[in-house]
Amino acid sequence: MLSQEKLQKIDELKKKYPTTKALVLPVLWMMQEELGHISTEAMKYVASLLSVPYSHIFGVVTFYTMYQSKPIGKHHVEVCTNISCLLRGSGKIVNHLEKRLGMKMGETSKDMKWTLSEVECMGSCGTAPMFCIGEEYHENLTTEKVDKILDGLK
């Protein structure tokens, strides 16, 4: 399920840790990068690749919030609603997003274009409110800015 290049990278990573189990998080990241989410198949694959039980991989995937065990939209909009953002108007951003996309927090659109999530503090409290889409942080948001960002996404 992983490219030759990624398998090679795994071999290199093995030298950096005293156990193979330590590669669980890095390899799950690779799977998610390659496939968009980590399916049961993918978990079984990682389990055999690293010689750890499938149940262990399942336990790890379900523990960490960033691993997606179900397919998500092409653009994953993650809005911080923790206190520094709350104080700077994250509520307005949430309402605006829900209205504009016609969906609620936690939902994925039928056409698989969008997933909306509420997240905990992202370390952008000084540039609140914020959301991120993929790895990209969008800070000091206003509803106009939100519109511009979403308009720019295909």
Binding site: N82, S84, E120, C121, G123, S124, C125, G126
Partner: peptide, 11 residues
């Protein structure tokens, strides 16, 4: 890990 709400310095 910097995840304590209100903290954004290590970044």
């Amino acid at each position: 890990d910097e995840s304590e709400p209100g903290t954004f310095k290590d970044r």
